[in-house]
Amino acid sequence: MAILEVADVNKRFGGLHALHHLNLQVEEGTTHAIIGPNGAGKSTLLNCFVGRLIPETGSVTFNDASLLGLKPHQINQLGVSRVFQTPEIFEDLSVLENVMIPAFAKADGAFRINAWQRMESRAEICDEAKHILEEMGLVEQREVLSSTLSRGDKRRLELAMCLIQHPKLLLLDEPTAGMSRADTNNTIELLKGISEHGITKIIIEHDMHVVFSLADRISVLAQGTVIAEGTPDEIKGDPKVIEAYLGGELG
């Protein structure tokens, strides 16, 4: 069953046709990679999923509900979490607080004033936060200010912030961009590890090594449209993909 369905989506920026009659289906429980050369429209597509951009035509449906016109917090409340290209965390707060905020957002909804109770008095959320930090190997650093974490640990923290919400769909925007080979491999291991949670994942990625290590299915984007789709093995041998990456004209 398709958890996310993108049908005939068009998006223009002035003269640039960023997304051109784009169709995409993401099956539940899979890791779906979206690859493509620079300017292919990968980030534009992701921004249409999270409510930052609204396409001119077409539809984006998640679990049979349209995502178009919803605000980012509403989409998150439906069960879509995202990881940013550079880790976006609450740098002025402690590691534990960083994971407690998304847990509260999940438990209490988008807005609920709870100005009298101390945060720590919600035991079930505290325990869950500590549990997820343990899983991510950050539990020792839970009282530390999160801005002092290393880049790799910030990535782990951001993942923990997403996972504590038990999302149905996790969007990963170039999770290894700008990382060293060793960090990249660590991140791959981390992402493989969270497959056990049974979360559907969409990965946008440049690095083929990452894509072929993680993806169950791959969609190749070029010039705003899907030019190929299939299993990693199918994509590896597809001449259209090689052509797109080498910058040749599309037939």
Binding site: K71, H73, F90, L93, A105
Partner: peptide, 17 residues
């Protein structure tokens, strides 16, 4: 405090700021 720290992240975390 999270609004001060990173309002953008907060809205993608499901909080209506």
């Amino acid at each position: 405090k999270a609004i001060k720290s990173n309002q953008n992240r907060l809205s993608y975390t499901g909080v209506n700021t």
